[in-house]
Design a protein around this nucleic acid. Structure first.
Length: 277
DNA sequence: AGAGGTTCTCGGGCGC
DNA sequence: TGCGCCCGAGAACCTC
């Protein structure tokens, strides 16, 4: 579900719902979600009495800014936040509940239980795991063709797994990597260091354009993704290859095929994206 | 029934 | 041989 465009959409829709709310209690039904502090009770105790002042984003991570703490949350595959009244029933996939003084609750629901939460003293979050080794934001001025080139030229990996590596650039997941590579006309199995300067320039621009257009459309709803106000994204309508196996390529009409690259399902147009010239 | 949008850890293999 | 790095596989979990 959540790559940069979906996480950014969640951030925007959730922030207006929870800003200014004071946490009265925290219920943790699946403690493995809480990665730090080591004891979930410490997580709960620290948050009681704290007010939410804003929500930030770093790559695919949400950062809840409180009075004294920053809570870093990753949705992984299926994590979702929703604001509900405390008497609204919740199901077995709801694993953490933040109860507010005003009778509402921020509920974290995650069918696959892969999501994570880390609590740090405010200001320490950026210099510790899991944010510590992240690469630049794709919309930042550091994400230049020169930077990308320096990262691509020193590895023998295929281009797709390199773009999914969050230490190279943050926010790209399996949907947008396939889309950006298609739009750049680059085969996902090309060795990263074999890309020339012109290809890298185009690739960087397609990454930025694909992600920013997806943010404008509220992300892509493929199976289950909804934002924190329960609304679908609309960028799935703009996809060229992801999930299009067997359909005609929108650019050339050739049938889109699915292969496995780096263990991930991968969609390409074999005419628009050639491995060899 | 095997794959699924993610990322961390671990072990094998290669090069110095 | 030994060490370190890099890369890929597997694991974490549940649903359809």
């Amino acid at each position: 579900m959540p790559e940069l465009p979906e996480v950014e959409t969640v951030r925007r829709t959730l922030e207006s719902l929870v800003i200014g709310k004071e946490i009265k209690d925290v219920s943790i039904f699946w403690p493995n979600i809480i990665k730090s502090p080591a004891q979930p009770e410490q997580f709960r105790d620290a948050l009681i009495g704290q007010t939410i002042h804003g929500i930030g984003r770093r790559g695919k991570f949400l950062i809840f800014y409180l009075d004294d703490y920053a809570m870093v949350s990753h949705l992984r595959m299926e994590g979702k936040y929703a604001l509900q009244e405390k008497d609204t029933p919740y199901d077995k996939h709801t694993h953490v509940i933040f109860s507010f003084r005003d009778g509402t609750e921020l509920r974290y629901r995650d069918v696959r239980k892969f999501g994570t939460m880390h609590l740090f003293s405010k200001g320490e979050e950026e210099s510790q795991q899991p944010l510590m080794h992240l690469g630049p934001e794709p919309f930042s001025k550091e994400f230049t063709a020169e930077y990308l080139s320096s990262r691509l030229l020193k590895t023998s990996r295929k281009i797709k797994p390199v773009l999914l590596d969050q230490s190279v650039v943050v926010g790209i997941g399996n949907i947008y990597v396939d889309e950006a590579l298609f739009r750049a006309g680059i085969h996902p199995e090309r060795i990263a260091s074999s890309l020339n300067e012109a290809e890298i320039k185009v690739l960087r621009q397609e990454i930025v354009d694909t992600l920013s257009q997806a943010v404008e459309k509220g992300g892509s709803t493929i199976r289950t993704y909804l934002n924190s106000q329960g609304e679908m994204g609309m960028f799935q309508l703009e996809l060229y290859v992801y999930g299009k196996k067997g359909e005609a390529c929108k650019r050339c009409g050739t049938e889109v095929v699915k292969l496995t690259v780096g263990g991930r399902g991968t969609h390409i147009c074999p005419s628009c994206q050639k491995l060899h010239d």
